[in-house]
Write a protein that binds this DNA or RNA. Structure first.
Lengths: 253, 253
DNA sequence: CGCAACCTTTGACCCTCGTCAAAAGTGAGC
DNA sequence: GCTCACTTTTGACGAGGGTCAAAGGTTGCG
């Protein structure tokens, strides 16, 4: 296909070599290991970190990119929380994922030159803007970066297949249990509590992601609470019995 | 992550420069345009086609790779038809896709060095074996190939998001209509009839993909037939009213 | 050619989750 | 601090699709 054409908004590529006001460095970023530069050795990192052209703040409720937007860059989340979604012909929204620090957004656009979905910040966030033109060039020069880029995309595919399993084969309570367990693991990895966190999404957004209606999600939270698995208060969730939650997953059917 | 380590089965990399018995060339392949080398100019293609180390026949029912297998290569389908699936802890299978000529398999393994899912031939098939180590090197030397590789992975992500929409937001009859419409488009692209084809998968496999039980799929086929949208006879399907099928999609809810 | 394994269809019944509705809780902006 | 819009919870009810069962069809193999 010849659609892989448009690559950079000019605005994001001005003066790529100039010194920047803020210190955008991967070297001293605590997310380095789980982010795109993970696996790049320290000497190379000095150069590789120039893939980060700038940073961009996205306030809660604002979109980082929307479906149909011209592709220019991929984005690494430096702080905050995003949802991604796609919309079909009838205006139905399907939430395709929730993303946090160190995770990459925007790879859906490489194939067509336009974003297929929308990324919206669910809390005030900041991302590292990595113009794809630069990513391409750097990937050529630094094999470890190339491999890491492929790995990140591959893992996104694997993640998507997991969501298909969730949506295609699991019952409602298994879906929510799987979601909570997954979220817990990702929080731990980032140094947060595995059992005590604030959900950034509404019941409706979570329902969309899980293929359920918001009422069902709400009922499941109540049900899990009654069962002593979690304590919910609005968006604040405390996992009381992670083993119990994960047993829900093994208890197929 | 350091998991991206293991790359080639020796067996697949022996004598990469030797002349081969069969003429494995992209230049004269009718799938060139929709395959990985698509977009590579003809001069470069002479070299680039060396990413195809060999071909491999996979008989109906055999697997090309299985979950847990060590990653060595990605595979371009030269002829035939595959299903891919993942299996969860409880042994539940979720079919994640159906693939035909020109499409790439195996990208799920780049991130971890092991295949996350399984690819099974649904008819006697042949694939081009492209050792990832060679793909990496070629991608460095030929930017167009690099871009195409990224594009292919990106499109797989977009496809997956479409499946999430299907599984998360559509009703049973919309899912089947969407599937038939999609299959029709892909057949056309490859020079086959858009309205007359042989389904390679069982009702159960199709049901798994669509998040439905086999009985539901069977009922839907009967229902579509009764409505004059299609004619079904076992695995042979003829689309009688593609517009009617696609209207099912717009008629949300 | 005939058997066995598998696949498909169809019916009857039922359960999970969606729909509709109402009320209470929460939070952002004036 | 008050209002209004949004979010969440909970209940009652119903339907879409799952489950169970049985029969017929198809295919491959000995």
């Amino acid at each position: 296909m010849s659609a892989v054409v448009a690559f950079h908004k000019k605005s994001e590529l001005l003066n790529p070599a100039q010194p920047r006001k803020f210190e955008v460095t991967c070297t001293n970023c605590n997310l380095r290991e789980i982010c795109l530069p993970g696996g790049v050795c320290l000497e190379d990192l000095e150069q590789v970190q120039n893939i980060v052209h700038s940073r961009r703040r996205v306030k809660r409720g604002e979109s980082l990119f929307a479906a149909g937007d011209e592709f220019s860059s991929v984005y690494a989340i430096r702080s905050g929380f995003f949802k991604t979604s796609v919309v079909d012909g009838e205006g139905r929204e399907q939430v395709t994922g929730f993303f946090m620090g160190g995770e990459l957004l925007g790879m859906d656009a490489i194939g067509t030159g336009r974003h297929n979905g929308t990324a919206v910040a669910l809390e005030d966030s900041e991302v590292c803007v990595m113009p794809y033109a630069i990513v391409e060039r750097m990937a050529r020069d630094y094999p470890q970066l190339q491999r890491q880029l492929h790995a990140v995309m591959s893992r996104e595919i694997v993640r998507d297949h997991g969501v298909m399993m969730l949506l295609g084969s699991m019952r409602a309570e298994e879906r929510l249990a799987a979601f909570l367990s997954n979220l817990s693991k990702r929080f731990v990895r980032r140094g947060y509590s595995p059992s005590d966190f604030h959900l950034r999404m509404t019941r409706e957004e979570l329902g969309s992601y899980l293929g359920l209606k918001l009422e069902t999600v709400s009922r499941l939270f109540s049900q899990f609470q009654k069962a002593g698995l979690i304590a919910v208060e609005q968006k604040h969730v405390r996992i009381l019995d992670i083993a119990g939650l994960e047993k829900l997953l093994s208890a197929a059917k």
